[in-house]
Nucleic acid binder design. Structure first.
Lengths: 334, 334
DNA sequence: GGAGACTGTCGAAGCGCTTCGACGACCGGC
DNA sequence: GCCGGTCGTCGAAGCGCTTCGACAGTCTCC
């Protein structure tokens, strides 16, 4: 296996057919008799043939590789990104494509580079920002792309994401059903709102609208991520709103701190305060108590992004915007 | 930018030289006069030329891509993996290489596929297990590889990792310096030890050896990751060992639960119990109180892995084993 | 039974690049 | 003034694959 690689010419010789016949067996682009096909496939197995990716890409103008571009935001290391990444890779393999990983460090130039050098056929961008520097480039690129998340001006782009507004609203509706009248949203750190990250704002909008629609009283606060700051926020909130009994937490890093803080303040969950989180399932399950939550459907989003980009590669029409509906898992915290 | 791609022939015509001259300007493999070089480079810029990756790989037998292989372990989504990944990509770009992301789903076959199809020149495997199915394959592959983590039989392989034994020992030494006599290690979930994951075992060995060396009393326990189980473990530990005053936690998901549990049991950190963690810096910083910790140097490990694999690609000798020394950051918890 | 339409296979022309050997032009040394 | 050696450049031969046009051989239908 470590000698010189097997070529299509050797397979053809071994099977007693022309090189082009082997190629057509592999691609299925012309009809081949069952008998010949079997002989060729047997030879391929016998010799352990794998087509040379570079040669294939040169001749066919398709690399069968898509780029997966990491978020621009520095220091983004949240676990959910890894889920997106593995979901994208797994889905891409189903379409017989591989995935090239690109960091934000290179910025738009990196995207241009891999596209212009025909390293990749298409691009999936994770977790785009509202005003993402890379978005204008995508519009002028010949290669199709799909964004996970929504920029401020999504016209002419293909975007996929969890419907965060619906997720925020779903959490409020759940609390309203349970009879809570005064609720609060603990969201992302203030800097995230200032940066204009789409999902944080959209959750807040969904929350606020649902609070009004259900005739509740509600407040939405940003939430930092150290225990001490979380504790101060929670304590302040409870002090200023004694009747508050429902909490929506949309901050993966702060979720456990919120629960710890409530425990320290002597509030029982869910008897005194009900808590709904928007976070990955494993975080919700491991919390004390396990949290009712809207999960971030990373696998589903990744799969959908790949499906869309593959359709675009085939020249098919795709919707500009795909919003995946939130799913609420009820656990012990409400 | 979206028209047909620029080729080396067009650059050559534009600059008034032969195709091979352009190639030599780019590769530097033959001397080119300063004057010609400048004309060629100007043409490259003017036309926006990017060499076709497939053609280059076909002609040169180098794809300038390395594979990054995710851990085999299902459901591994810990944040630290994302750091490895970004570190590897960033480091690879410094060597003018890109990174192809491979999931564990495909197993050894996936590795064989990308190697045999010349999609990648070399491989980096993240977080290998003690008895990893992919390791035998790596030995017979012509392409060089580097492992992050150590399998049971590392002979003939190149491995990089944090020196977890030293990390465990360093934590014990720190607690001993602070005057603690009775200490405990809360490690990974039991299933991780059973699976034989190297880093969990090595931390425990380092811990145990250091406890003996410092003449302390110590116990090492596995630790599950739900709040309730962590709480039971912590409560049981404190009940059975009233004099226990130092805790080493090597479990990223459980760290905040341990602190919450101590708070609930009325033990102050660090006055009643000192806590040292082995976990990423951001988790330690955000904890309440901020934790003295040995950080997982993901960036450094990733960079070193790439450096080694590049040296192997050049045919240079590299050490079989690279252990990065632990670094202890002292914070409020000890 | 022959025209026309398929079927299954082949050969050859690229795809865009690297690299090898060749070859003028120029240099210094005798 | 001529020889051997660099230096800088060129042309052409691949690298391994896909795809186009060609072409025997079969089938179908009137």
């Amino acid at each position: 296996m470590s000698g010189r690689a097997v070529t299509i010419a050797e397979v053809a010789r071994h099977a007693g057919v022309a090189v082009s016949t082997v190629s057509y067996v592999l691609s299925g682009k012309r009809t081949i008799s069952a008998d010949t096909r079997r002989r060729v496939l047997d030879s391929i197995n016998a010799l352990g043939y794998h087509p040379h990716a570079g040669a294939r890409s040169l001749a066919s103008k398709r690399s069968n590789v898509i780029a997966l571009v990491l978020p621009l935001r520095a220091g983004m290391h949240v676990p959910v990104l890894m889920r997106f990444a593995t979901a994208v890779v797994t889905a891409a393999r189903r379409f017989d494509h591989d995935v090239l990983l690109l960091t934000a460090d290179e910025g738009p130039e990196g995207i241009r580079r891999v596209a212009a050098s025909a390293l990749v056929d298409a691009l999936v961008l994770m977790d785009v920002e509202l005003h993402d520097r890379r978005v204008p480039l995508l519009r002028e690129l010949a290669e199709p792309s799909v964004l996970i998340g929504f920029p401020a001006e999504p016209a002419g782009l293909t975007c996929v994401d969890l419907d965060f507004a619906a997720a925020g609203a779903r959490c409020v509706a759940h609390l309203a059903e349970r009879g809570h009248r005064q609720v609060a949203l603990l969201g992302a750190p203030a800097v995230v709102y200032e940066r204009g990250t789409g999902f944080a704002r959209r959750t807040r909008e969904g929350f606020t609208a649902a609070v009004a629609a259900h005739g509740l009283e509600g407040v939405a606060l940003p939430c930092e991520e150290t225990f001490d700051e979380v504790h101060a926020t929670v304590a302040g909130l409870l002090a200023s709103r004694p009747a508050l009994s429902g909490l929506v937490v949309h901050n993966e890093a702060a979720v456990n701190h919120v629960l710890g803080s409530l425990r320290q303040l002597g509030r029982r969950v869910p008897q005194d305060v009900a808590v709904v989180a928007i976070c990955p399932d494993d975080v919700a399950e491991r919390a004390g108590p396990p949290l009712t939550s809207v999960l971030i459907p990373a696998e589903e989003v990744g799969r959908e992004a790949v499906r869309l980009v593959m359709r675009k590669l085939e020249g098919l029409e795709v919707p500009d915007s795909t919003l995946l509906p939130p799913h609420l898992a009820i656990r012990a915290s409400t």
